[in-house]
Structures are given as C-alpha cells and as structure tokens.
Simulated scan of single mutants.
Amino acid sequence: MILSKNIAVAALTYLFLNNEEINIANAKKSVVNHYQQYQAEKEFGVKKASFELSNNGFIRYRRTGNDNKVEYFSVKMDKILNVDYLGTEKMGWLVIKCLEESVIYQTYQDNKGNVDDMIAEIKIPIKNIDITEINVWVNDINNLKASKF
C-alpha cells in the first residue's frame, strides 16, 4: 500500500512539474508570437528587429536601423518591475520597466559613438493590437517572471 502511494505521489509530482514546464513553454511562445505579430519597428526606420526569451530567463531585444545602427537590450526576467502599454489599439509602446540599471543597453555602428550603458526600461513599438491581446501578452510576461525559470 505504501509503495503504491509513493508511486502515485511521484506520478502526480511528475505531472505537475511537466505541466509547469509546458505552461512556461507556452507562455514563452505566446510572448514571442505577440511580439512578432504586433511589432511596429518598421514604422520607426528599423529594417530588422528580434525579440527572444532565453532558457535562463533573459529578455533580449535587438533592432537595426536603416542607418545600420544596432541597439541591443538585455534584462533578466526577475529584474522586471512591471509591464505597461502606452498608446491606442492602433499604435503604442510596450514598456518593460525594470530595476534601476538592470537593463544592458548597447549600440553598435552608431555615427555618434557606440554606447554601453545600464538603463531601467525597454520600449517596444507595437501596432494594431486590441486590449485583450495586450492583457494576454502582459499576463504571460508576468507569469514567466513569477515562474523564475
């Protein structure tokens, strides 16, 4: 009887952990998909941009302007204080506010000189997104932050 209880507990633990891993994977996929679907960098003279979530909990955002200036942002999820959306459903900014000096900000190929600095937020231009999708996106980011993956 004790052996079968141990097996049941082990099975439930495995299912719980597996479901948590699945939920984290789904949230990561959702966050990146929302970025890809609603990103608006081209409206601001950006020819190439990328947004990714690493397996060790980093958000990495990179954009290359038409002048070939590259901007790179990186922050660990546990440094995020809150995520806001500023704008309308037609156009706005996803603002990821973080602890002071927790976001790595670097520029390359900048005519004014390259920058290597620590800042407190990342602003991502967004277009054509309804309030429901904004809420899903922000909720997924908050769930990932809470998961401490």
Rank of each mutant, 00 (worst) to 15 (best):
K79D: 06
V95I: 09
L81H: 07
D67C: 03
L94W: 00
V75N: 01
G87W: 02
Y72E: 14
F73P: 08
I104N: 12
D117A: 08
V83E: 00
N56H: 06
N56I: 09
W93F: 06
T88H: 03
I122Y: 01
I131T: 13
Q106R: 15
K69G: 04
S102A: 09
G113M: 01
N128L: 11
S102G: 05
M91F: 10
I96G: 00
L99T: 13
Y108W: 13
K69M: 07
K79L: 08
E100T: 13
R62P: 09
I126Q: 06
F73N: 10
D130T: 01
V75I: 07
V115K: 11
L86E: 11
K76D: 07
K76S: 10
T88F: 04
M77D: 03
N111C: 09
I124Q: 00
E101A: 15
T107M: 10
V83F: 00
K76V: 12
I126Y: 06
I80A: 02
I96V: 08
K123S: 09
R62G: 12
E89A: 13
K123L: 05
N56E: 09
D110Y: 10
M118Y: 15
I96C: 01
Y72V: 12
Y61E: 02
T132A: 15
R62M: 14
W93H: 03
V70C: 03
Y72S: 14
F73H: 09
V95C: 05
C98V: 14
I129V: 03
N111E: 12
L86V: 08
Y72G: 13
E100M: 12
I59V: 06
K127I: 01
